[in-house]
Write a protein that binds this DNA or RNA. Structure first.
Length: 960
RNA sequence: GCGGAAGUGGCGUAAUUGGUAGCCGCACCAGACUUAGGAUCUGGCGCCGCGAGGCGUGGGGGUUCGAGUCCCUUCUUCCGCACCA
């Protein structure tokens, strides 16, 4: 039979499903290997050809590892909470769960068609209660923990409470809110329960705090920093503004240093690591307090110092002004009556400026004088205090010291406001611009004069620490992650409120199931959709101390008994999209466990992800949050590894390749129904029009299909070149509106999954971004037919010979055995596809139909084109289904040994000819053969070689 | 501005250690078979040149017997960050 891919693929997909061929065992004598794909959000649009790229690569790798004798975990699931389903629900009233279910069915059908070897018995969905029960459980652990800097790990909040009861706040080195109190043990015990809880909230790793957040009015929710791009929401592209709100946050900053250090221990792409380093943004410097001049003191003032962060504390004698961010909280209190109008105007103006304007306009110098002064702590000089929008409220302390001699922005600022510029380095040149040099010796710097950078910095920090005016400090750009969304379609937060303080619900009540609501919109009063739910309250039984057993007993005398029975409002916001994806790889290890998020045994067995494949767009979101949660779980002793993903590969983005037709424009400027071929458009007035790429092949328009494409083109006329209509091409994002979406279903229907899998790999290196181009898929399809033909005679009957294989056949086979091994291990999938083609071309030329050769070839190709190989494997007489676990053929170098090599002979580095010479000869003998060769002599033309370079088995170079 | 990746035929790409640049496909050209070809097969296909030959890996320079690969310099494209104190 001819190669009937449709029947073959359907047959084997069904076989794999029915026999659970790829079910992984949590218990095996084989070594484990965990291959993970970033699970998709099931969108309504389904998969386009770009999506499976990474899945195909990971599937080839997973299948290859099985052949190599590994116990492979290769699961798939859905990140099924998210905005699009909810937006759709708002528009249509359709429950997001239903939309999600439908979309998942589409995804599953499309994934199945590609012949992936996923263990579907382990499927997870972040939106199913059985899954988010454990997302909520992890949230509770985060709430019940604090970060102990001394131990450099998260610890139970009980331990902190015990310390407070014994020693008060003394000796606690924690990552916490800024404004924690100091107290003795007795003072702590004297606090009532509410006061204690309020204080503890400042330490919890997940906490509730009034903070400035990214508020997106169009989406009606707050967003995390990584969800905002250039002042607009990543999803939907709506404007985002800054707003002060009480919000759930995660103290990811506690892990900043570990997140940074960990990058050096994992095998990830350098650009991605760099993005995370950038995002974490560590900078080493000092914080310095500048006392506010007495004259400025007034009743509104909450502090007598302005704290700045600087990486160049050594330049402090060059300070000639201080600048606050316009949003800085001390601005109103420090503005003198005379300056009030100017400051108010400036603050108002900068508030109006969008984030984007502010970034675009970096050259104009602007600012305003507050009228107040501060004192430089190193020389007691009076320094004027300004505000300016080049200082960002969100970074450092929102205040900077102005050193115009060393910083270009300060230099421009000083010039603009006629402030003095003081040189502090002997070799500094500040005539036309600031000079940030660290070389040279300090001048105009009192006790630092004459010192170099290193000693000077140490000296000034010592001075500041002694006088209490400052200290060495490490600052991070990364902020704590906002953890609440005012949306419906997400995990409910397992918290209720009593006297405005958050308390965890009882663990036994998990999962806290998402309630039904009448509409998926905020309430009239602006509360999140969950406020619409009927009776969204936590019912607390009559105060029974035993019900609280195991919970924190902060104040046993007053606390438990005081707990009033009754119902308390649940939290109304839900968790953000990244909650469910920050731990899902553990759930795959033990997906049905109802007692734990995964059993200790399963986690101990699978440990971590050996290979993770996904897009680089998750660099500062999912991949950072996952590392954070993993480190937290490690601190609690729940998982064994510090890093979750040992090796990570970013598959390239597949862009769209749009095709255009060119519509003729008449004298009146109206579009006609005549279309001009690409090469001729210069001679006419035309306007380009997107045309469906599926009716274009190799940029040649299928005119009949075009006429049928849309009604108004039925009578279209064409001006052709060489009898063809050539379309224009542009690379754009793949989207429906550009008619450049290529659907895998269509390609599978036409060529089969094996062809599509191999073609996607054949496109180029996995990591490379490239436009999708279906041109060339024919070549891969022809290859598979040619491969199929090796096993068949002229009449398409399966027919093999049992003869001894020839040397040439063995050579071809063993070349490909080795090549695929090498390629797969270094994730170079494109090169193995071309090697397969070479092998099949060679074997075809050799008229090879030798069973012992082809039997092995099937196994080698099986990870790339599993369906055709399964079919041939059975035709070869093997057990159905056994191919997936067959041993990968053993490479034997002997078959590749040659006795002769065609040496390229070059003269002065230019290759002139090839000479076949026995490989048994040594360098001197080779030189002898070459130099005495008649053709070489002709080239030499009597000249004597100065030198002859002989590299055995490689090259001969004659230097004249 | 800072950081990263990459520039090779008409196109996608290959060359794992400094050792014959262009493998494997697509497209194209010629031929065979054919009523026909969007099927199949054979051959050709970096550029210039009839040829001998010359030139070729973004440009310029260097190291080397030998450079797509190493070094310096410069240009271009893409990605990330961006008034970060």
């Amino acid at each position: 039979m001819d190669y009937q891919f449709k029947d073959i693929e359907q047959k084997w997909q069904q076989f794999w499903a029915e026999n659970q061929t790829f079910k992984a065992d949590n218990n095996s004598a084989k070594p484990k290997y965990y291959v993970l794909d970033m699970f998709p959000y099931p969108s309504g649009a389904g998969l386009h050809v770009g999506h499976p790229l990474g899945y195909i690569a990971s599937d080839i790798f997973a299948r290859y590892k099985r052949l190599k004798g590994f116990n492979v975990l290769h699961p798939m699931g859905y990140d099924s909470f998210g905005l699009p389903a909810e937006q759709y629900a708002i528009q249509t009233g359709q429950h997001p769960a239903i939309t999600t279910e439908t979309n998942i069915a589409t995804y599953r059908r499309q994934l199945d068609q590609l012949g992936f070897s996923f263990d579907w018995s382990r499927e997870v969905r972040t939106s199913s209660p059985g899954y988010y029960k454990w997302t909520q459980w992890i949230f509770m652990q985060l709430f019940n923990s604090w970060y102990n800097k001394a131990a450099d790990k998260a610890e139970s909040i009980d331990k902190l409470v015990a310390h407070f009861e014994q020693n008060g706040s003394a000796g606690i080195d924690a990552v916490s809110d800024e404004e924690v109190h100091s107290f003795t043990a007795d003072e702590w015990k004297a606090l009532n329960k509410e006061e204690q809880q309020a204080e503890l909230l400042k330490y919890r790793i997940t906490y509730l705090r009034e903070s400035i957040v990214n508020w997106c009015p169009a989406l009606g929710t707050v967003l995390a920093n990584d969800e905002v791009k250039d002042g607009f929401s990543e999803r939907g592209g709506y404007p985002v503004e800054q707003k002060k709100m009480r919000q759930w946050s995660m103290r990811i900053t506690a892990y900043a240093e570990r997140l940074l250090q960990g990058l050096d221990t994992i095998d990830w792409p350098e650009p991605l690591k760099e993005m995370q380093r950038n995002w974490i943004g560590k900078s080493v410097g000092a914080s310095v307090k500048f006392p506010i001049e007495k004259a400025a003191h007034n009743s509104q003032l909450t502090t007598h110092n302005i704290e700045v962060f600087t990486t160049r504390v050594d330049t402090i004698f060059g300070v000639t002004f201080l600048v606050l961010a316009p949003e800085h909280e001390l601005v109103p209190a420090l503005t003198t009556p005379a300056q009030k109008a100017e400051i108010d105007a400036y603050v108002a103006q900068s508030k109006k400026k969008s984030e984007l304007d502010r970034m675009a306009d970096t050259k104009t110098v602007s600012g305003a004088f507050t009228g107040s002064y501060v004192i430089n702590p190193v020389n007691n000089e009076k320094v004027p205090l300004y505000i300016a929008d080049y200082v960002l409220a969100g970074y450092g302390t929102g205040a900077v010291m102005g050193v115009p001699s060393g910083d270009q922005r300060d230099y421009l600022f000083a010039n603009h406001f006629n402030l003095p510029i003081v040189s502090i380095m002997d070799i500094q040149n500040i005539e036309t611009e600031a000079d940030p040099t660290k070389d040279g010796r300090y001048i105009n710097s009192d006790f630092m004069n004459g010192l170099n950078y290193k000693d000077g910095t140490a000296r000034v920090i010592a001075f500041l620490e002694e006088s209490g005016a400052g200290k060495a400090k490490v600052n991070f750009r990364m902020r704590d992650a906002i953890f609440g969304r005012q949306r419906y379609w997400g995990e409910p937060v397992p918290v209720y409120f009593k006297d405005d303080l958050p308390y965890l619900i009882d663990e036994k009540e998990l999962p806290l199931v998402l309630p039904e609501v009448d509409k998926y919109l905020p309430t009239e009063s602006g509360e999140p959709p969950l406020a619409r739910a009927k009776d969204w309250n936590y019912r607390l039984a009559q105060s029974v101390p035993s019900a609280l057993a195991g919970e924190v007993k902060v104040s046993p005398t007053e606390g438990d008994l005081e707990e009033a029975a009754g119902s308390y409002a649940y939290e109304l916001s839900t968790m953000p999209g990244w909650a469910g994806s920050s731990w899902y790889w553990y759930r795959y290890m033990d997906p049905k466990n109802e007692q734990e998020f995964a059993s200790e045994k399963a986690i101990e067995y699978w440990k971590d992800v050996d290979l993770y494949i996904g897009g680089s767009e998750h660099a500062t979101g999912h991949l950072l949050y996952s590392r954070f949660w993993n480190k937290f779980l490690k601190d609690l002793g729940l998982v064994p590894e510090e890093e979750p993903f040992k090796k990570l590969i970013n598959q390239g983005m597949i862009q769209g390749r749009s095709n255009f037709v060119y519509r003729l424009i008449d004298e009146m400027g109206r579009g006609t129904n005549t279309f001009i071929s690409r090469g001729l458009i210069k001679e006419y007035k035309t306007s380009p029009l997107h045309v469906d790429v599926n009716i274009v092949e190799n940029d040649i328009l299928n005119i009949n299909q075009f006429k049928n494409w849309r009604d108004d083109f039925k009578d279209a006329e064409f001006i052709l070149e060489n009898g063809k209509y050539v379309c224009g091409v542009e690379i754009e994002k793949m989207s429906k509106s550009k008619y450049n979406v290529v659907n895998p279903d269509d390609l599978i229907a036409r060529y089969g999954a094996d062809t599509l899998r191999m073609y996607e790999m054949f496109l180029g290196p996995l990591e490379q971004s490239k436009p999708w181009n279906t041109n060339g898929i024919e070549g891969v399809f022809k290859f598979l037919r040619k491969f199929w033909r090796l096993f068949h005679n002229e009449q398409w009957e399966f027919s093999l010979s049992n003869a001894e294989p020839t040397k040439a056949e063995l050579k071809s086979l063993h070349k490909i055995i080795r090549k695929v091994e090498e390629d797969v291990e270094r994730f170079s999938f494109n090169t193995s596809v071309s090697s397969f083609m070479i092998a099949v071309n060679e074997l075809t030329d050799l008229k090879c139909n030798n069973r012992s050769i082809l039997q092995h070839l099937v196994v080698v190709l099986a990870s790339y084109a599993p369906h055709i190989c399964e079919e041939l494997w059975v035709l070869l007489g093997n057990q159905p289904g056994s191919l997936s676990y067959a041993p990968y053929p053993k490479f034997n170098a002997e078959y590749l040994v040659e006795d002769e090599f065609a040496y390229p002979v070059s003269i002065n580095g230019k290759t002139k000819m090839n000479l076949s010479i026995s490989l048994s000869l040594d360098a001197a003998a080779i030189e002898n053969v070459v130099v005495n060769n008649a053709d070489v002599q002709k080239y030499l033309d009597g000249r004597i070689p100065q030198k002859v370079i002989v590299v055995k088995g490689r090259i001969v170079n004659i230097v004249l």
